[in-house]
Design a binder for these strands. Structure first.
Lengths: 205, 205
DNA sequence: TTATATACAAACAAACATGTATGTATATAG
DNA sequence: CTATATACATACATGTTTGTTTGTATATAA
């Protein structure tokens, strides 16, 4: 059988992406061959080359499928004015992301691939730029929330919102890294939300 | 020429390690071949295979050459009783590490390789365990310092030394990651020590 | 109904990397 | 002084991966 309908083709495309995620996770991006991916998706390399130019394109497809929605989501929970105070808003935003990682297998796997199963050289080096860009974007959103908190006199001490935001971002960045490396979940995974709450409470008056 | 003296041999061994570090940094561990490393060290693959079983062994050699001393050092600055208060001790320990990264090129490169130029799968997966182990070890040392700080009533708020230690460790972990990714130094590298000081000051009464 | 573009499968060729086997000059032990 | 182990260089054989090319069945447009 060949030449499926358009929906069939789109389905194989998604199956290839899905397979690539599993293979990348198991063998690392570099050691994953297109043959690995193809056979895991139960197609031939011909199908893979039909849908993607090469391995790098599959990598980017996986990344965009998961990260773009995540950024948007963090944006929303940080920006939209709810009835919570700004500090709780930051807390919820971070906890939401952790919950999403706990529940969304694809996102968890993608995170793991990006953090410890990929080498950022050559074609992949550009991703680092994007990561840095996303990070500073998120940090700015957090900073805005801290500024609102400062205006409402919710903050302890005399630290600037900027400093607090960078500190929070670095904390969360470290947490995510540890969360991923903590394969059995004993050290960080189960306590992540508690750690976030403590982190925020440190700033509360 | 062949069959050098013992010192000559040790020198080529070190030159191979040095070359491997440069090559790993430029091409990532996976894409680096023993031929790349050999030619960069101005020897043949024969020499490489004489000194090392394979690429993985070179990787571990690089890692141990830099990380083991670093752990010891952090241990010392955190444990040895100086005339500073415990919080300053933590601050200095973290700043010391950053300074070391600034001054010690080999250490900086090694960090970069381990963080964003290596895929932790198969033979490399065991390294993750070691990293986790080192991290919890350092966190414990920080916790001890926070306990001393608590005993001396230096701490603000009601957070447990354990929580503070984990928070500090995650912050520092995130900082190191960003420090490495921040290739032009504009975002984190130049402000790292300031960020550390702010982080510690958040806890000071 | 027929022509064509689509969605692959299968085959091919070239480059590359690895490990090993072999050769060899020389430091060093006896 | 000689034998041997050392410290490599060179050559080879093999497996792997990649990109491309070719073949082909069929959905779809005309």
């Amino acid at each position: 059988m060949v030449r499926k309908t358009k929906e069939d083709a789109e389905l194989t495309r998604r199956r290839i992406i899905e397979a690539a995620r599993a293979v990348f996770l198991a063998r690392g991006v570099s050691r994953s061959t297109l043959e690995h991916i193809a056979s895991h998706a139960e197609v031939t390399r011909g199908a893979v080359y039909w849908h993607f130019k090469n391995k790098t394109e599959i990598f980017h497809a996986i990344r965009e499928q998961v990260f773009l929605p995540l950024i948007d989501r963090m944006d929303d929970t940080l920006t939209v004015q709810g009835n919570e105070d700004p500090l709780t808003q930051i807390e919820n935003s971070l906890c939401d992301t952790i919950n999403e990682l706990n529940e969304n297998i694809e996102m968890r796997q993608t995170y793991e691939i990006m953090m410890i199963k990929c080498e950022y050289v050559d074609e992949f080096a550009t991703v680092l730029q994007q990561i840095l860009s996303n990070c500073s974007h998120i940090t700015e959103k957090i900073q805005l929330a801290y500024e609102r908190a400062e205006a409402q006199q919710l903050l302890i001490g005399k630290n600037s919102p900027r400093t607090l935001a960078v500190d929070t971002h670095l904390f969360f960045s470290g947490l995510l890294h540890m969360w991923v490396k903590d394969f059995d979940g004993s050290r960080f995974r189960f306590q992540a939300t508690d750690l976030i709450k403590s982190h925020i409470n440190l700033r509360r008056k």
